[in-house]
Design a protein around this nucleic acid. Structure first.
Lengths: 149, 149
DNA sequence: CAATCTACCGGGGATTCCCCGGCGATCGGG
DNA sequence: CCCGATCGCCGGGGAATCCCCGGTAGATTG
């Protein structure tokens, strides 16, 4: 259950490159491949590692427009919204938060008309605030080991 | 350069599970392993696939508090902020956007005092708006193939 | 039609994965 | 102290996979 420094090293390596072999991973964290395999399997089965994802350049696959949309949704019926999220793969991320704007979404669109269409669909649920993203100063990264203890 | 439906199938599989073997990937997209390998290498070298990341459960590694922080930063000196982003691994994501709040950050903290400390550091740069995240309705996903054309 | 290019397939040696037994350290009880 | 149990780790061997090679079918060009 507890995560020691070796586990953190494994997590760091797999967050940097999830496709290295278990042999290479073991080499980097100074462990045999079988011990490494055992630890990775444990981290997976305990739900510490929830999956391995390829990271795709949105611009190169035809979604050059990235926006943050905040949704103020006064109602209480969240099912239709969930359905929209499932249908619309352009909605990359949806966080339900405290505060006035109860949802914060990250949306990828192929063009401004496409973005407009997406925002229109969201506006059915409440008032929206849309901000275009200039750049991703810090591309997504996962957690790393705490400084001490 | 162009991305056909087979490429999209490969991207979908690798976004679902980036650690499957190239043989298995080829099986799923109905291609030989060598043709699959060639396509994956091309997607990597052209920058379509930018990397492979393990996805980690933040709560299970000691960061149960997730927040969206918007930063209104009137100045023009972005270097100190970039340095903070590099130092502070708790800042998972940082988007520079249009609008009044020119940065939107996603922050993971071990506790409320820890979050307070992080927000304090950000407040050095400008006024902040912090929203705690209840739940991640849509966990992060990448793009998928457009409906038609 | 010949030459060329592209995308694909199949093969074989090197590498890796996966499951097994065994070793050393730690811990609690006799 | 000694024993038995447990845990994490190591090493080994067969099976699967990776990686690089040549070869083939279809499209394009001259």
């Amino acid at each position: 259950m507890a995560i020691d420094s070796t586990d953190w090293a494994i997590l760091a390596e797999l967050q940097a490159d999830a496709r290295i072999s278990l042999t290479e991973l073991g080499r980097r964290v100074s462990l045999s491949s079988s011990a490494t395999t055992e630890r990775v399997r444990r981290l997976e089965s305990e739900g510490v590692i929830t999956g391995y994802r390829a990271e795709v350049d949105l611009t190169k696959v035809g979604y050059p427009v990235l926006a943050v949309v905040r949704l103020k949704y006064p109602g209480n019926k969240h099912e239709p919204l969930r359905r929209l999220l499932a249908e619309r793969s352009e909605i990359l991320e949806c966080l339900r938060t405290t505060g006035d704007d109860c949802y914060t979404l990250k949306v990828a669109a192929a063009s401004m008309p496409h973005l407009e269409e997406l925002v229109n669909e969201l506006t059915d649920f409440g008032s929206t605030t849309t901000n275009l993203v200039y750049s991703q100063t810090q591309s997504y990264r996962g957690p790393s080991a705490p400084a001490a203890g």
